[in-house]
């Protein structure tokens, strides 16, 4: 599974302004809504599902990375948004450090398999410190898509 299969350039933002968990999620979901990849009416549902998921335990897995994710019945396929925060966000992360890299995943209700594969794929890329650093130094959406696509080709 390639990341470029479920992440479009329009769903990338390299300067997240929000500094609170819920606001960051809101910003990412709006991004997804504006990308045209989902029904706009679905955004509220997604945000609620994401917050519910966070209340079970933070999706900030450490090393400055958060992978907020949820399943909803109003999307028909797995879809992602990507955000970078310059300042970092307190996200109750597992290592106590702020999160800078956000990979938001939204999947249809009944999709255990693709969801897990996408998580695995994202984790594989982000495990690499060099890749995390290159992501964080991206100044625009195009450069994010470029390095993600490069990795997709390399490690597929």
């Amino acid at each position: 599974m390639k990341i470029s299969e479920f992440l479009s350039e329009k769903a990338i933002f390299t300067d997240i302004k929000a500094t609170k968990k819920e606001d960051v999620l809101k910003e990412l979901v709006e991004l997804l809504g504006n990308s045209g990849e989902i029904d706009k009416r679905c955004t509220t549902k997604i945000l609620t599902a994401l917050m519910a998921r966070e209340s079970l335990g933070s999706t900030a897995i450490g090393q400055g990375v958060a992978i907020p994710h949820a399943k909803v019945d109003c999307v028909s396929k797995l879809i992602a948004a990507f955000g970078l925060s310059r300042k970092g966000v307190e996200f109750d992360s597992l290592d106590g450090e702020p999160a800078y890299i956000f990979f938001l995943l939204v999947a249809p209700q009944d999709s255990a398999g693709p969801h897990l594969k996408a998580l695995a794929r994202i984790a594989r890329l982000l495990k690499d410190k060099y890749f995390r650093d290159s992501l964080r130094s991206c100044q625009d959406e195009k450069s994010v898509i470029k390095i993600v696509t490069q990795e997709d080709e390399k490690k597929f």
Binding site: I61, G62, V65, A112, R124, K127
Partner: peptide, 13 residues
């Protein structure tokens, strides 16, 4: 001991 490591496995049911 690494969550990214464990997630990388993508171990399904």
């Amino acid at each position: 001991k690494s969550i990214m490591g464990i997630l990388t496995l993508g171990a399904e049911q």
